[in-house]
């Protein structure tokens, strides 16, 4: 008496039909959403185009049509080094082994450049530079000297007078 419909034999197939309908509706909604989300990529996939080939523009390195002695704004164009009566000595001694760019990006005192030459002689088969060495060192120390710049320089070590701080007093 308390469950009047539970014994109704017609109720079971109606339930099943209802669940199938709900499943179908849910499936349709999910499909619709998926399409909305993926629309662009699906379109792209359907309408595939060949990947465009980007042409790289090759720039010529220093070419032979620049004269050996061309100077613009104080720079010897072929090497990028500062122009100077002795610049060809530097080019001859240094750039047969390495790029002039290695010089340009460095800064050192005369002593520092000398140390680099000694290192190259010791480890890189650089030969004795003979009479050219002082010319090369003068040139490098003049044009590629360290610069005091930046947001904070080192404390000036040359200006410090070191003293023993007597803490016994």
């Amino acid at each position: 008496m308390s469950k009047p419909n539970s014994s109704d034999p017609n109720a079971v197939p109606n339930w099943r039909l209802f669940i199938a309908l709900v499943k179908f509706t849910l499936f349709t909604i999910v499909l619709a959403f998926s399409y909305l989300l993926l629309e662009d990529s699906i379109d792209e996939w359907i309408n595939r185009k060949p990947i465009p080939i980007v042409k790289t523009v090759k720039r010529n390195r220093i070419t032979d049509d620049i004269p050996w002695d061309k100077v613009v704004n104080g720079i010897h164009v072929r090497s990028g080094l500062y122009d100077d009566p002795n610049v060809q000595t530097i080019i001859g001694a240094c750039t047969s082994c390495h790029s002039s760019k290695l010089i340009i990006q460095n800064k050192a005192t005369r002593e520092g450049w000398e140390q680099m030459i000694r290192w190259m002689q010791k480890t890189q088969n650089l030969s004795d530079l003979g009479e050219s060495e002082p010319i090369i060192l003068d040139y490098l120390a003049k044009y590629y000297a360290p610069k005091k710049e930046g947001r904070r320089t080192n404390i000036d070590m040359d200006a410090i007078e070191w003293y023993v701080l007597d803490l016994e007093q």
């Binding site: 404390i155 410090i160 007078e161 003293y163 701080l165 803490l167």
Partner: peptide, 15 residues
């Protein structure tokens, strides 16, 4: 204090 350039012995505290 101290003036820049102070040298102290190891183990001492720097005022």
């Amino acid at each position: 204090y101290p003036k820049s350039g102070a040298m102290i012995k190891k183990g001492k505290k720097l005022p």
